[in-house]
Design a binder for these strands. Sequence first.
DNA 1: CACCATAGACTGAACCGCCATTCAGCGCCC
DNA 2: GGGCGCTGAATGGCGGTTCAGTCTATGGTG
Lengths: 203, 203
Amino acid sequence: MSAADATPSRTDKHELILEAAIRVFAQKGFHAARISDVADEAGVADGTIYLYFKNKDDLLLSIFEEKMDLLLAGLREALVGVTDPLEQVRTFARYHFRQVQDHRELAEVLQIELRLSNKFMKEYRPQKLWEYLGKFAEIVRAGQEAGQVRTDIDPFMAMWAFFGAMDEMSMQFILAKHRKFSLDAAADTVSGIFIRGLSKEKP
Amino acid sequence: MSAADATPSRTDKHELILEAAIRVFAQKGFHAARISDVADEAGVADGTIYLYFKNKDDLLLSIFEEKMDLLLAGLREALVGVTDPLEQVRTFARYHFRQVQDHRELAEVLQIELRLSNKFMKEYRPQKLWEYLGKFAEIVRAGQEAGQVRTDIDPFMAMWAFFGAMDEMSMQFILAKHRKFSLDAAADTVSGIFIRGLSKEKP
DNA sequence: CACCATAGACTGAACCGCCATTCAGCGCCC
DNA sequence: GGGCGCTGAATGGCGGTTCAGTCTATGGTG
């Protein structure tokens, strides 16, 4: 209640509801989650949610849109100063798995729940995801130009393969009740395979 | 109408409905698909479906269960006679993508729609999927024992990475309106990366 | 300073459209 | 004629969404 806290009671409801929705969707799943569950979790009335979001779908999409911006910004920052393309692959993997680790519930929503809606996957083009993954395709292309990466592999195919590998490992991590492996190990494994798999054979 | 066709009018309704469901679920998505849509597609009454399946969820699970059996059997057959572990990786990838190609609608249901239900992913343990993928872990382990595959990589981690890579590429293939790449190329890319990524470095 | 007017934020009970599921009955075949 | 497979209209409940009403903050007025 300091003077600096100029608006103590005026917590941003938009943010409040969004964070509550992430927790609820992660726990119950988007489909099974009721608007009233989100409202309870956020400590607001059902109707209040409709003052900040168009409908239940919009709530899910807003989570995606707003969080992907943060993820992308963080990725860019993580890559600053790493110049070797093959080293960038490792950095990408580490960053990705660290995010999954640090934001488990968000990861769960993005991974499992966003795919539920094939309306989302089929009609809505996840521009933000493209920006994120596009970084990897850039890395591969740069590596090819620098002569370190084999040129018989299409950067976009490599991108999807890499993302798919990370995604599936994250999924297993999220689904596993008993943590059978660390995400650090996962990052090392996937970057280990791809770094060697993509680099030019020693002559 | 030969004598061999002993039960011409007695088409197996179970099979008929299952195949109709695959087409409908692939096209509209599981959630948006109505039981009456499936009934129409199969040319039966709504109620008939409940004579063969417990409910809508059971219909989805039955698709998974029955089709995975076929997939697994096909995979085993495809691997017959291929002894080199690294060659088995290529065979696995080729088989997988060929199935996606030849059974597009089934692939769509298995890939996109099955994941909708986190009940499915979280509570129901997809034993059949494990059997299918477990083959890959076996291949890796055999390769390690034979000294061809690097031993610093856990076979199960490699398994998830491999599956994830194939899965994501299939997903892109399915989602892409214009076919930007062939699945044969996808098989070569993913096996190319993994074969080199997994094999022991030349001394 | 006490009081009121007004706007804007918030509430939550009730509504309503939507299907999954049911079941009473129908017709075909032995 | 009766049993079996099938039909499809009717049912029920579920939960997203709405909106009339309440509450709170603010600032204008005597």
